[in-house]
Design a protein around this nucleic acid. Sequence first.
DNA 1: AGAAATTTGTCCGTATGTATC
DNA 2: AGATACATACGGACAAATTTC
Lengths: 137, 137
Amino acid sequence: MPTPHYGQPRYRVIADDLRERIDDGVIQSGTLLPPESVLAAEFHAARGTIRKAIDVLRRDGYATTEHGRGTYATKRNLDHAGQQETRQREVSADVRLAALFGVEVGAKLIERETVIRRDNRVEVVLNSYRLCPRSRS
Amino acid sequence: MPTPHYGQPRYRVIADDLRERIDDGVIQSGTLLPPESVLAAEFHAARGTIRKAIDVLRRDGYATTEHGRGTYATKRNLDHAGQQETRQREVSADVRLAALFGVEVGAKLIERETVIRRDNRVEVVLNSYRLCPRSRS
DNA sequence: AGAAATTTGTCCGTATGTATC
DNA sequence: AGATACATACGGACAAATTTC
C-alpha cells in the first residue's frame, strides 16, 4: 500500500485512537503502552508512523517516553490539572489589529490560540497575533 | 556512513548550525530557508534528518513552515528588551468565543490585551479572555 | 486557465545505535 | 550476555499545496 491519506493522516488517527484508550482507561494512567513494534502490527502501520502518533500524545501531555523502557500513559486529571490545547491558523487583520501592526485591514496574521480548561470548562482563551513571516521585511 | 550518533545526533547538530545562521543574520528573519532537498545535499543527510532538524527550530520558535511554500526564519536579533503594555476591558463574546465558553453571543467577557513592541514595531499581540466573575455560576 | 515544476507532508521498509530489563 | 524497546538515519515513493510558466 503506497500512501493513501485522505482526510486525516494515519498518525493522527492512530494518536486519536490511543488518546481515547487512555481517556477511557483502557490503557490506565501510569502503565506502559504496548511497544511500538506491537502497535505497528496492530495498526498495520510502519513503526515510524507509530512514533509520530506517540509524538502527538507526548506533545499533548498524554504520554511520556523513556529510552529503552517504554512509553507511559499519563492521563490528564481533568478535574484539577487543567487541560490545554493550542492551534495555529492564518487570519485576516481586523481594524484594530491592522492599526496596531500598521498594515492594511485584511492583511494576513498568524493567530495562535490556546484554550485552557479546568473542571471541563473553558477558563481562559489566549490569542496571540503576529505578522506572517513572509510579510515582514 | 552507517548511523553513528555518539554524543549529539546529527539532526541536532544541523539544527544548531541553522539556528546560528539565523541568529547571525546569515539567514535573515522573514526569508526562506533553502529547500529541504538542498539542505539535505549540503549536509549530506537524508531529507528526513533535515526535517527533524527543522522540527527543532520550529519548536524553539526559530522557523515557521508553510506547506508547498517553504520554511521561514522567524527569529530576529533582540538588541533591545522591547516594551510592553497591557490594558484590560470588557467586551462582548463573538460567536467563536461564546461557543468556547458555552455562553450566549454578546455575553460579557474580560479581555486583557498585551502589546509587545520591538524596534518600535508591534511584534506580537496577546489577548486573553475570561468570563466576567459575576457571570460565572 | 491549465500544465509543469517546486516544495513540504506522509508513509513505508530497513538497518543500526543506545538504554533498559 | 542476551533480549527487549526506544532513538537515529537512510532511501524511496507518493500526496498535497504553492508557485511558475
